[in-house]
Amino acid sequence: MATEKKVTAIKNTPKHLLGIQNLSVLEAKEILTEAKSFIKLNRGSSKKLDVLRGKTQINLFFEPSTRTQSSFDLAGKRLGADVMTMNMGNSALKKGETLIDTAMTLNAMHPDIIVIRHQDSGAPNLLSQKVNCTVINAGDGRREHPTQALLDALTIINRKGNIEGLKIAICGDILHSRVARSNIYLMNMLGAEVNVIAPKTLMPKGIDNLGVKSFTDMKKGLDGCDIVMMLRLQNERMQGSFLPSKREYYEFFGLTPEKLKFAKKDALLMHPGPMNRGVEIDTKLADDINVSLVKEQVELGVAVRMACLKLYCK
């Protein structure tokens, strides 16, 4: 990172982490610096701190999640917080009213942090208006997934030393991806150049105004890139409504060793998971430790979430 000096941009409590859009550069850098200090701790044998001792963290997941949920779970526990995870399921009946009702109920139990994952864009914003504790967004609809972008940034910094001046390609279902959006904001903020690559039906309108260049051709989009981020393509979108077929998608947008050659020689590969092997990514490539940062992303995810919990729950 450019500045190793300790910056303290995050001051007021309770403050919420709702999206990268609401962060300043200083705030983002502070989180990353803080997260760095946790990487070693997480690799050591004694992982427990008491920074959040006495604090209560509730993970409120309205959408199923494996890695984000377990990552937040571990992060809270390692910092000494009491962590409770609630899986709210996906039933339509539980939508909406339950969010506000649940918020009020939980609020009465005086949590210090609520981590929320919700299928509706803006749900964490709504929640944050109703509770008086810190709200951390663990993914809302197709809007933002800030901790994913932060862990991606940390992973890149860890390998490349810096983000400024890098060229980063994000490929796949940009339209439905909160990971893409958060990464676009964060990578831009940290001085990278961002390309997005997707078939036209999966490219959102107005994306160019977000400060990216958009491509429909992997060869052009990957040209000169240091980092290639692949996105998950959901099954139901491959059967004729957005795309003709799985194999057509793989042919043109699946990342293969051949296509990776369009990028820089030392280009690295990232994926927020879970991967569809053989759909958006070649299975060998995904496991190639010289190229793939996927495992590192998961590892650093815990460190980033620890940093967020610590900084936002002062």
Binding site: Q21, S121, G122, D140, G141, R142, R143, E144, R178, R181, P204, K205, G206, I207, N209, L210
Partner: peptide, 15 residues
């Protein structure tokens, strides 16, 4: 409305 605002807010837009 479909467009940049919808894209930023992560909402389904209509053309």
């Amino acid at each position: 409305n479909q467009g940049e605002v919808a894209t930023r807010l992560g909402l389904q837009g209509v053309s």
